[in-house]
Amino acid sequence: MADGSGIEWTEATWNPTTGCDRISPGCDNCYALTLAKRLKAMGNPKYQEDGDPRTSGPGFAITEHPSALDIPRRWASPRVIFVNSMSDLFHARISSSFIREVFQVMEETPRHTYQLLTKRPRRAARMAAELPWPSNVWLGVSVETTDQLWRIDDLRRVPAATRFVSAEPLLGSLACLDLTGMHWLIAGGESGANHRPLDPTWVRELRDSCREQGVAFFFKQWGGRTPKSNGRELDGQLWDEMPVPTQA
């Protein structure tokens, strides 16, 4: 948990669960997996259980943290909160009962805005009827290439007031992307020692799709050895559009 964040599109992070498993190309150089290994070595008690070495790693086993549930309740002033920067709330090994507890916290703290990002929207859609969907809960899906477009279709089945797409790391063209039912799109390049290149044409295609379909567009970074290596400008300007909140 961090009250404050280096992620440009949020203000704080909250991790009621930690750990995950790689399931698509965007996971290949997962920053959270690398960070979990470091936190385990530092003795952080939340990162001592190891995940499957084929898909996860040291300190990155799926773990629920009931002691973290009250943290947003203790934050008196409103914050935009990225939920589970170190996990995926809809992972199959997170219990349905704990997911419901997380949603209860979000429902009980309407002063905050919660941003959930998942690669597993099918489970979100299956659970949608048993979860509250207040207007302060946003749900997004990661889409790195055209092979993940099905995630947007599943997201449309969820009654979140604000739905968004994270095309980060963007690994291929998503030209003519259908953004029906979406309110926001984040695009960005990969960072780290093994970062893959980002073609400017792919970013412009997404920006133009957003303009044509009335969707807010946020360009996070070009990526490189570090997240800030090559800046954030696209065609000479910053693109920091945010969605207009709607009612669930």
Results as ranks from 00 to 15, higher is better:
Ala2Trp: 10
Thr10Trp: 08
Glu11Leu: 11
Glu11Lys: 15
Ala12Ile: 14
Asn15Leu: 02
Thr18Ser: 07
Ser24Leu: 11
Asp28Val: 11
Leu33Ile: 07
Arg38Cys: 00
Arg38Ile: 04
Leu39Met: 08
Lys46Arg: 14
Asp50Met: 13
Arg54Leu: 07
Arg54Gln: 12
Thr55Val: 02
Thr55Phe: 08
Ser56Lys: 02
Gly57Ala: 00
Gly57Ile: 05
Pro58Trp: 13
Gly59Pro: 01
Phe60Cys: 12
Ala68Asp: 15
Arg73Gln: 13
Ala76Glu: 14
Pro78Arg: 08
Val83Cys: 01
Val83Ala: 04
Ser85Lys: 01
Ser87His: 05
Asp88Glu: 02
His91Tyr: 07
His91Phe: 07
Ser96Pro: 05
Ser97Gln: 01
Ser97Glu: 14
Ser97Cys: 03
Phe98Tyr: 15
Phe98His: 09
Ile99Gly: 08
Glu101Gln: 14
Val102Asp: 13
Val102Tyr: 03
Glu107Asp: 09
Glu107Gln: 13
Glu108Gly: 06
Thr109Tyr: 10
Arg111Gly: 14
His112Asp: 01
Leu117Gln: 03
Thr118Val: 13
Lys119His: 11
Ala124Val: 06
Ala124Thr: 03
Met127Thr: 05
Ala129Ser: 13
Glu130Ala: 09
Leu131Lys: 08
Ser135Ala: 07
Trp138Asn: 00
Val141Asn: 01
Asp147Trp: 04
Gln148Ala: 14
Leu149Cys: 04
Trp150Cys: 03
Arg151Met: 11
Ile152Gly: 03
Leu155Val: 04
Arg157Glu: 15
Val158Asn: 09
Thr162Val: 09
Arg163Gln: 07
Val165Glu: 11
Glu168Ser: 06
Pro169Leu: 10
Pro169Val: 10
Leu174Ile: 00
Cys176Arg: 14
Gly181Glu: 04
His183Ile: 04
Gly189Arg: 04
Glu190Val: 13
Ser191Leu: 13
Ala193His: 06
Asn194Val: 10
Asn194Pro: 06
Asn194His: 15
His195Pro: 08
Arg196Asn: 03
Pro197Cys: 13
Pro200Gly: 01
Arg204Pro: 02
Leu206Asn: 03
Asp208Gln: 13
Val215His: 09
Ala216Met: 05
Phe219Tyr: 04
Lys220Leu: 02
Lys228Phe: 14
Asn230Thr: 12
Arg232Tyr: 02
Asp235Ser: 08
Leu238Gly: 10
Asp240Ser: 08
Ala248Asp: 00
